[in-house]
Amino acid sequence: MDAEGTGRGRFEGRIALVTGAGSGIGAAVARGLDAEGAKAVVLADIDGPAAASVAKEVTSGHAVALDVADAGQVDAAVDEVVRAHGRLDVVVHAAGVDDPVAKRWLAEALVADRPPEVTARLGDGAWQRVLRINLDGTFHVLRAALRAMMPNRSGSVVTVSSSAAFDALVGYPHYAASKAGAQALSQSVAKEAIAFGVRVNTVAPGPTETAMTAKNPEVMRKGFTDPRVRPFATPEEIAAIALFLASDEAANLVGAVLLANGGRFTA
């Protein structure tokens, strides 16, 4: 409901798709879209039951199981949204992964007070998994979104990057590369898409209280804690930035990257 209590919001009547909507930032975005008047919100997540659980809280919600690394699945999901609703107005791409094994290696190095050794130990499978989901998945979602939006010459896409795209973490090369790549990809696509009335922008969070970060080893959580800056963001705080970027309020933002890391560094 808006400030005047009319029940209208920034996304009144719009059709939206949110990836990674089964938890964290994606779930918060889906709830926000619903609260601000979206006609339909499709909650997509590789964990279908998790997406379905969040969808129960979303009046206009519908859940689908979706692996963004699978181009065919992404295309089919977007095609189904267009078939069901006639168009697609908003996409927020929050799906992504980290590497718990590499994080364990980093934690062990911190506890032992020695430099981390990750890159030399990193297998092809671990590298490819992170790049396939974080980078290839972003391409798949952007491509499918543009195919749906360009004929209508309108639409907004928001991708979720990471502050690691700016301040590459020591011993986390695949994650940093995947997020930096996805960010550059989004900015390149933004320059192309705006000629067809479609805006693409990015939010780059710092440490955020999600299910992913909850699994971080305690020594790493302490490493991200600094009394001189804001504490870990909430998913709702990051979702608010994504919703702003997706809304008409950000009509003049194209290819923007909003760094939201609580003051840990600036870029």
Rank of each mutant, 00 (worst) to 15 (best):
S163R: 07
P116K: 13
M149R: 10
Y172I: 00
G197D: 02
S178W: 08
Y172A: 13
L253R: 00
L131K: 10
M150R: 14
F224L: 15
K179M: 15
G137V: 09
A126V: 15
A126K: 14
R143H: 14
A180D: 10
A251F: 11
V130C: 05
S247K: 03
I238S: 06
F196L: 09
A242Q: 05
G262M: 08
R143N: 12
G197C: 04
G123V: 10
A145N: 02
P231A: 08
P116S: 13
L131G: 07
G263R: 09
M212S: 11
P231Q: 02
G155D: 01
P207E: 01
V198G: 02
S154P: 03
P235R: 04
T225H: 08
V229Q: 08
Q187M: 14
A145S: 12
V118W: 08
E237M: 02
Q183E: 15
A246N: 09
A190P: 01
P151L: 08
A240P: 00
A177F: 06
V203R: 06
Y172S: 15
T202R: 04
A193G: 02
H140G: 07
T225L: 04
P173F: 11
K215F: 01
D167M: 10
A240S: 14
F139D: 04
E209S: 14
A180I: 06
A240N: 11
T159F: 04
I241Q: 13
I194H: 02
A168S: 12
G125C: 00
G171H: 12
K179E: 14
D136S: 15
A168G: 10
K179Q: 15
N201Y: 06
A240W: 06
A246V: 05
A240Q: 05
S163M: 15
M220T: 00
A144Y: 01
A164K: 05
I238F: 06
L245P: 01
R129H: 14
D248C: 12
S162D: 07
T225N: 03
G197I: 06
R132T: 15
Y172H: 11
S156W: 02
A144S: 14
T138K: 06
D226V: 05
L259T: 09
N201L: 07
G263L: 10
R147Q: 05
N134K: 09
T234V: 00
F196A: 10
E117K: 10
V229G: 07
A214I: 00
L131Q: 14
A195V: 00
N152M: 08
G263D: 03
A184F: 03
K191A: 03
I194Q: 03
P231S: 05
G123E: 09
F139Y: 15
G262S: 08
A242Y: 01
K215D: 03
L135T: 09
G171Q: 13
Q187R: 15
S163H: 10
A251M: 01
V257P: 08
G206N: 07
F232D: 14
L169K: 10
L122W: 13
L142I: 13
V158K: 05
V203F: 09
V158D: 00
D124S: 12
A126W: 04
V254Y: 00
Q187H: 05
A260F: 07
V189A: 14
S162F: 09
A195D: 02
V157W: 01
A246C: 06
G263V: 11
A211N: 13
F232L: 12
T208E: 06
R199G: 07
L253Y: 04
T210P: 04
A164Q: 01
V160L: 15
P207S: 03
E237W: 03
P207Y: 05
H140C: 08
